[in-house]
Simulated assay, not measured.
Amino acid sequence: MLRTQKRGMGYIAVVVDDYDRAIEYYTDKLGFTLVEDTPQPGKRWVVVTPNPLSDCHILLARASNERQKDFIGDQCGGRVFLFLQTDDFWRDYNAMKEKGVHFCEEPRQEEYGTVVVFEDIYGNRWDLYQNN
């Protein structure tokens, strides 16, 4: 008998300095949905997503020690860390720009689609992109 498995990314942790500040940025500036905010001993389980129907979410993880604080905003050594795919590049680009999201460059056309690099509130670099 052939068994099939469904595997995928469930959560990606982004280290933040403050839960409420991060929630505000991701929901107000990027248009994400707050999926969960559950208190736990000494921390909170805070989950946001660009699409509630997606299986992949971002866990906003508050730094709990100095070593973790050092990685806030630099989780990928200055490279693009996360990739936000959209079905309407210009709609999302213009909405984010209007809300004060910092873009590192002008949008550009690549062979795979339209893309622009932006930084989140902490300096993590993202691609906003739409495939052709």
Rank of each mutant, 00 (worst) to 15 (best):
C104W: 02
N131C: 06
T33F: 02
Y19G: 02
W45F: 08
W126Y: 09
L84Q: 01
I72S: 07
A95D: 14
T27V: 15
G8I: 08
D120W: 01
N51W: 04
Q40F: 08
K99T: 06
Y93N: 05
G78K: 10
N65R: 03
I121Q: 08
S54F: 05
F71W: 12
R21I: 15
Q85W: 12
I12A: 15
Y11V: 08
W126S: 00
Y11K: 14
P41G: 11
Y129T: 06
V35D: 06
V16A: 08
I121R: 03
I23C: 02
N124P: 00
G31L: 01
D37Y: 03
Q130H: 07
C76K: 11
K97I: 08
D74P: 04
V117K: 05
R7I: 15
T114W: 00
D92R: 08
G78E: 12
C104E: 15
G123E: 07
G10W: 10
F71S: 14
D127L: 09
L30S: 00
Y112L: 13
V48N: 02
K6E: 15
D18L: 09
A61W: 14
G8W: 13
L82R: 09
E106M: 00
P41L: 09
N131Q: 07
K29R: 15
F32R: 04
N124S: 02
L60Q: 03
P50V: 05
T114A: 11
L59V: 01
T4E: 14
N51T: 07
E110A: 12
V46H: 01
G73I: 02
L82S: 06
E119Q: 11
L60N: 05
T27D: 04
W126A: 01
C104K: 11
P41W: 04
F103C: 06
E119Y: 03
Y93W: 14
P107N: 10
C56D: 05
V35A: 01
I12H: 13
L82G: 11
R91A: 12
E105S: 12
D87S: 08
Q75A: 08
G123Q: 14
D37R: 10
A61M: 14
Y19N: 07
I58D: 04
T49F: 06
E24V: 01
S54T: 07
Q5F: 15
Q85L: 10
I23Y: 02
E111K: 13
A95Y: 03
T33Q: 01
Y25N: 07
E36S: 13
C76T: 07
Q85F: 02
L34R: 02
F32I: 13
V47W: 05
D88H: 09
N65T: 03
Y11Q: 10
V48H: 01
T114L: 11
L53I: 10
W90E: 15
T38R: 15
T27H: 11
Q75I: 11
G42H: 10
N65D: 15
V116N: 04
A63D: 06
C56M: 13
A61F: 09
F83H: 13
V80G: 11
V46N: 01
N51M: 13
D28M: 08
R62D: 01
R79A: 15
D127R: 00
L128R: 00
D55N: 13
E119P: 01
W90T: 07
A95Q: 11
N132Q: 14
